[in-house]
């Protein structure tokens, strides 16, 4: 089975996010980018399938800051091939990105595409569904387990309240992965460094990504702090005392 995992780089949410002077986008000059955590899960699930059934795993990402590092890390974890998609900038819409990924897939023999279920910066729709529609193949979102049984792919889709559905698909299909069956593996820095010396990243052109219907951002803003929590200050002991008082009052 040939599995493709498209990887997205997103701002690290631990860092402070600043809005640009126009007030319609993040100030991208100082952003530190990292792999979208759900892509990490998609990659892990692909590698689990490879370990169990001997699949090949191809990762691909749009060219940009940190792309090389993220792709080499994926190779260090066990992916077989890494592709950089060039000629499309990070400001592309989800639809354009889906078209770029679809164009790249034309040159790849694939059975299964595992994407992350969503990304924190996605305003205009989740790529797995856009990509599948563009490729004319089915999709399933919010997937937490994938099992291969001969020619059948068993998929666990999660609903609210812990209810899950099992669906069966045949290749080709796009799955939006919410969680891998195991915590995503870790690649030691030394291994990543070694791979950087040994392995090559392939490059393909994004090609025609079209436009597609879109909306415009009129304003970007941070939530109004005034409406939030009453903050309790002081040293740990004073804070604990105040919290105990609040909790005891509520309990009685």
């Amino acid at each position: 089975m040939n599995i493709v995992v498209p990887i997205k780089l997103v701002p690290d949410l631990v860092e402070e996010l600043e809005i640009d002077d126009d007030g319609t986008d993040l100030d991208r000059d100082f952003l530190s980018l990292r792999i979208n955590e759900f892509c990490d899960h998609a990659l892990e699930e692909a590698l689990q399938l490879k370990d169990a059934h001997g699949a090949t795993v191809t990762v691909l990402a749009l060219d940009g800051d940190e792309t090389d590092k993220v792709l080499y890390t994926a190779l260090a974890k066990g992916a077989d091939r890494a592709i950089k998609i060039t000629g499309i900038d990070g400001a592309a819409t989800s639809r354009q990105t889906a078209n770029a990924v679809a164009n790249a897939l034309e040159g790849i023999d694939y059975d299964l595409v595992l994407t992350g279920v969503q990304a924190a910066d996605d305003r205009d729709g989740q790529l797995p569904v856009l990509l599948a529609s563009r490729l004319g193949i089915p999709h399933v979102s919010v997937v937490s387990e994938v099992a291969i049984d001969g020619d059948a792919i068993h998929i666990k889709k999660e609903y609210a309240g812990g209810v899950t559905a099992t669906l069966r698909a045949k290749p080709r299909v796009v799955l939006g992965v919410q969680a891998a069956r195991e915590t995503p593996r870790y690649a030691p820095v030394s291994r990543v460094r070694q791979i950087m010396k040994e392995a090559e990243l392939d490059e393909v052109e994004a090609g025609d990504v079209g436009a597609g219907a879109t909306s415009s951002v009129r304003r970007m803003f941070t939530p109004d702090k005034g409406e939030g929590a009453e903050m309790i200050e002081g040293d740990a002991d004073a804070i604990a005392a105040k919290l105990a008082e609040i909790l005891n009052a509520k309990r009685s």
């Binding site: 989800s94 639809r95 889906a98 279920v117 969503q118 996605d122 305003r123 205009d124 729709g125 989740q126 569904v129 856009l130 599948a132 529609s133 563009r134 999709h139 399933v140 979102s141 919010v142 889709k157 999660e158 609903y159 609210a160 939006g176 597609g212 219907a213 879109t214 909306s215």
Partner: peptide, 23 residues
């Protein structure tokens, strides 16, 4: 924007070529 909705919203938007705003 539920598990079911995530499978529907983008599919309709892209196949009808109309804009989608998520979340």
């Amino acid at each position: 924007n539920t598990s079911m909705g995530m499978d529907l919203a983008a599919a309709v938007a892209v196949r009808r070529d109309v804009p989608l705003v998520a979340y």
